[in-house]
């Protein structure tokens, strides 16, 4: 198996007629993802290389049987698009868009959480890749092969770096989940830990965190209570000065709370080994799983 996306995925893309949306949709389809439709208001009836475009998510869900949405529309329209997909009953919503206003994210998050069958990944995330099965988003799939390590991360390119280090040691992945770098991610480490724990293919979990917020600390508590599979951690931002924003809206350090050192300590206190470099993460994985 894999988590979140796989052979059952029937993808509908909001923003499919934009240049970025189109490029990555076709990339995802080339990888083998079952892309069933797209949504662009006013362009219903058209198609993108054979993928039918609908005016609304409701029409797309009904007529193309979409069960997964990818949101690729610009920030001013992204929250609305997520809510539309949710209202149409699309259960897995993956939002790639970066720069959505915080108050929009707050309202969207609260609304999505009212319906336990809905799941939002992102926003501001690279998507989810289940190697050999499906790729939804912008993760460069050619660097990853199928395997037994589940990876979840708050940062896109850092995920590629860690995935690549693992690949060089001969490991593949069950799924790679980009959670996104925004202050209010729809899905947290804890949600994905639960998925990986219950996924037969996953034998080891890598969690890549960064400064800011308390997601890693909460994950540490959760791992101690609920996760039987080995978890290897990584935290970016040991050298980040307090009070500075390092690009991700979420990565703000205030006082001692949310620092990389505090997060690594919280994880290690619960028995999670934390690599100090991406290379070291792969080395720890080798030690645990064997080369």
């Amino acid at each position: 198996m894999s988590v979140l996306v796989g052979t059952d995925t029937r993808l509908c893309v909001a923003g499919i007629t934009g240049s970025e949306g189109r490029f990555h949709t076709l990339n995802n389809r080339d990888y083998g993802t079952n892309v069933v439709s797209g949504v662009t208001p006013g362009k219903g009836g058209q198609d993108v290389e054979g993928i039918p475009v609908f005016n609304t998510f409701h029409a797309a869900a009904e007529e193309s049987g979409a069960n997964t949405a990818m949101i690729f529309v610009p920030p001013p329209f992204a929250a609305d698009s997520i809510l539309e997909a949710a209202d149409a009953g699309i259960e897995t919503i993956i939002a790639i868009t970066e720069g959505i206003p915080a108050h929009d994210e707050l309202r969207v998050y609260t609304q999505i959480k009212r319906n336990p069958s809905l799941r939002l990944i992102g926003p501001n995330c690279p998507g989810v890749l289940s190697p050999g099965k499906a790729n939804v988003g912008i993760i460069p799939a050619s660097f990853f092969k199928e395997g037994n390590i589940g990876v979840m991360s708050r940062s896109g390119t850092l995920t590629y770096q860690i995935g690549n280090e693992l690949a060089q040691k001969g490991f593949g992945n069950s799924s790679i989940v980009g959670l996104g770098g925004d202050p209010i991610p729809g899905t947290s480490f804890i949600d994905v830990l639960e998925l990986f724990e219950n996924d037969d293919q996953t034998e080891l979990i890598v969690m890549s965190g960064e400064i800011g917020g308390d997601a890693e600390e909460l994950a540490a508590e959760y791992i101690a209570e609920n996760v039987t599979k080995p978890v290897v951690g990584y935290i970016a931002g040991f050298t980040a000065p307090p009070g500075k924003t390092m690009g991700h809206a979420g990565a703000i350090v205030s006082g001692s709370k949310g620092t990389a050192a505090a997060k690594a300590e919280a994880l290690e206190a619960k028995g999670v080994r934390v690599g100090r470099t991406p290379t070291q993460v792969a080395e720890i994985a080798v030690e645990i799983l064997g080369g």
Partner: peptide, 10 residues
């Protein structure tokens, strides 16, 4: 990418 740059600084 912000995460990769932070990691690079480290």
């Amino acid at each position: 990418g912000a995460g990769l740059v932070m990691s690079t600084l480290d």
